[in-house]
Simulated scan of single mutants.
Amino acid sequence: MSKENNQLVVKEVDFQGATLLGVQTEDGKIWAGVRWMCEGIGFSEKQKDRQVSNIQNDLVLKKGSKKLSLKFGGQVREVLVLELDFLPLWLAKISITPAMQETHASVVERLVEYQLKAKDVLAREFVHSPIQEYLTWDEDERAIAYFNERKQKKILEQQIQIQAPKISYYDLILQSSSLIATTDIAKDYGLTAQKLNKILMTAKIQYKRGKKWYLYDDYAKQGLAQSTTELIETESVSFASQHLKWTQTGRVFIHNLLKDLGISPIVDQEFKEAR
């Protein structure tokens, strides 16, 4: 059962056959009524008074306690409450002696239950539970919630598709192990074969002898490219033609070189513009 006390939310919570008092203040903090806890455990009036005194005089516990003015049955009462985070500490400080175990076994049993569970029981009463709220809705409210959830899910999926990174040109290179001609690489960057060959020549990576391109020795040893031979046949003659084609390692090398020069693959440019 809950009720409003000005800016306070007060709840009486059933626990172990007794009633706990929980209070939530305007700042969101949750407090436990000390006397309700003592009564639930089974303490006598003298023991209750001792526990109130212990809390008010303890160096740590008194920092988490205060008195609240609460209305009960039309009357306002000053109630000592303990902040929920201090509750386990207070209960742990209540010693269970051998004599207590022998003469008040039921009190000891309840005390242990309070030490282990009371804080969580009170906390659950004040923490918002979407499931509990859903169970209070009628069929129309549940149907509206269902369709709203589906709508939000669809919007989220569309946003994910838009924001998800497209596969980069570098990824495409790594997916292919085939040899590829300079002309094809140049197209991927919006360049002509002549322009790319000139860049590679200026960077002292390749040189031209006659009509053929060759790598300088330092780069030839790195496995960047291979010389391939193609048989070309016409009606009157057949001849072999040699071409320089780039390996996967060579394509990565060219990609990094062009990147340093500020030249990006077309696929990466389109992705950047789309974002």
Rank of each mutant, 00 (worst) to 15 (best):
Q132H: 03
A118Q: 06
Q159T: 02
P130W: 07
Q194P: 10
Y169D: 06
Q158K: 13
N148K: 15
W213V: 11
E113I: 07
P98K: 03
V108N: 10
F126R: 07
S178Q: 11
A193Q: 13
K198S: 03
T182M: 13
A118I: 07
E109C: 06
K204T: 02
I180W: 14
K204E: 01
E109A: 08
A186R: 05
N148L: 14
M201Q: 13
K212L: 10
L196C: 02
D218R: 07
F147C: 08
D138K: 07
I160W: 00
H104I: 06
T103E: 14
Y114H: 13
S178L: 02
L172I: 09
K117L: 03
S129R: 08
L191R: 09
D171S: 14
N148R: 15
S106F: 00
R150K: 10
S176W: 03
I199Y: 06
P98G: 05
Y170E: 14
K154T: 11
V112I: 05
Y189D: 03
A181H: 13
K211Y: 12
D184I: 04
T192R: 06
A203H: 02
E157M: 08
M201D: 13
S106E: 13
L196G: 11
T136F: 05
R142G: 04
G210T: 04
T97M: 10
Y216T: 01
D140H: 12
Y134W: 02
K208E: 01
H128W: 05
L196Q: 07
K211N: 15
L200P: 09
Y134R: 07
D184L: 07
T182L: 11
I185Q: 01
K208F: 00
I185Y: 12
N148A: 15
K154D: 15
I180N: 15
A118S: 04
I173N: 00
F126P: 04
G210S: 01
Y189M: 01
I155A: 02
L200A: 04
P98F: 05
I180F: 13
Y114G: 15
Q206N: 13
R142K: 11
L200S: 05
A181L: 14
E125A: 09
T202I: 02
D138I: 05
D120N: 08
H104C: 00
I205S: 12
E149H: 06
S168K: 11
A145L: 10
E102F: 00
H104A: 08
R110V: 04
D171T: 09
K187N: 01
N197M: 01
E157N: 04
R110G: 13
Y170V: 00
T182R: 14
P130T: 03
P98T: 09
S177M: 07
S129T: 07
L174G: 15
P165Q: 10
K117N: 10
T97I: 05
Q158H: 12
G210P: 07
M100T: 03
I205L: 12
F126H: 00
K212N: 12
Q158R: 12
W213E: 14
A186T: 11
K187V: 01
K166D: 01
Y146V: 02
E125I: 00
T103K: 13
K204S: 04
D120G: 03
D140R: 14
E149G: 08
R209N: 14
S106A: 11
D120C: 01
L191N: 09
S168R: 11
A181S: 15
L215R: 10
Q132I: 02
T136C: 03
G210Q: 00
V108C: 12
P165F: 12
A203S: 05
L172K: 15
E139N: 15
R209S: 14
E109T: 10
T103N: 14
